[in-house]
């Protein structure tokens, strides 16, 4: 469990970091919190020969609201997301979701953007990004800044549309109005483990009717899965517990989950049925 040899670079600015990355993008990896990358290097599942540590790059941490958008800088630690004081349903969702990310030591080091760039289907932040159609702001030395929609960003397992010479610098999320109800429910064998299945939900309920429904599921597909079937069941209907159960059924029918040592496909479908309503209920102040 010792990594292969690598060069270690510690740039002091974003420009310097991008320049270093551009020099040999195929062989380089950006290091932020290191909570996934370092174990993978120790297992020699990843053997980058150049590591670019962006922990000294300024202006990559923090959350700020501008208009109806929340910008989360990429290197913001999970713990800081968990401690956010943003009022309303988005702030609540972020706090709830952060509580499911690993254990406290992991949360003090791991980063929001790192988790999204890593693109693990079980990651809470990938779920949230998919759920709310987040926009990823990425930068390269040669092409400058561009924005990628979540639907285009997550490609397949551990694969995003981030180019090898690009760095993810921020993720932008919509600040949800007070009519929105957000929630997350996760099932893991042990506290702090990656969820076997995770359900994240955001419903805009206006005068008892679901004006808009967003449902994202983790652990059922190689990337976060937006359940169109469930969203269709919910949208435009009067909000009732029965409606949510029907949506969960639709989602369970729609997914084609993998089987592994933690559970087979049918069990994961059962978890979708169980967790989707729990996510909705958690947002309504009940479990």
């Amino acid at each position: 469990m010792k990594p292969s040899p690598f060069e270690y670079h510690r740039p002091e600015s974003l420009e310097e970091a991008l320049g270093m990355l551009a020099r040999d993008p195929d062989e380089s990896k950006v290091l932020a919190g290191g909570q996934s990358l370092v174990p993978m290097m120790n297992f020699r599942l990843a053997s980058p020969t150049r590591l670019i540590d962006i922990n000294r790059v300024p202006d990559l941490e923090g959350m700020s609201v501008s208009g109806d958008r929340l910008r989360v800088a990429a290197r913001t630690r999970h713990i800081d997301v968990q401690r956010n004081e943003l009022p309303g349903p988005l702030g609540e969702l972020l706090r709830e979701a952060a509580g499911h990310v690993g254990h406290l030591p992991i949360r003090t080091r791991g980063t929001f953007g790192g988790s999204i760039a890593h693109c693990d289907a079980a990651s809470e932040w990938c779920q949230v990004a998919a759920l709310l159609d987040a926009e990823m702001t990425v930068v390269s030395a040669s092409r400058g800044e561009r924005t990628i929609q979540a639907a285009d960003f997550f490609q397949s397992i551990f694969t995003t549309s981030l180019e090898l010479d690009e760095i993810l610098v921020a993720v932008t999320l919509p600040v949800l109005g007070e009519t929105w109800v957000t929630g997350i429910a996760e099932f893991a064998r042990r506290a702090g483990d990656f969820g076997i299945v995770t359900a994240t939900t955001a419903l805009n309920i206006v005068e008892g009717v679901v004006a808009e429904a967003r449902i994202s599921l983790g652990g059922v597909h190689e990337i976060p899965f937006r359940s169109e079937a469930a969203e269709t069941v919910l949208a435009g209907q009067a909000f009732t517990p029965e409606l949510v159960v029907a949506a969960a059924e639709a989602a369970a029918d729609e997914v084609d989950p993998p089987s592994d040592v933690h559970g087979d496909a049918d069990y994961r479908r059962d978890l979708v049925r169980a967790l989707l309503p729990r996510a909705v209920r958690s947002g309504m102040g009940a479990t």
């Binding site: 099932f187 069990y267 059962d270 978890l271 049925r273 169980a274 967790l275």
Partner: peptide, 8 residues
């Protein structure tokens, strides 16, 4: 105790 829905 057993959670009926998840089997926990």
């Amino acid at each position: 105790s057993i959670d009926r829905e998840t089997g926990h």
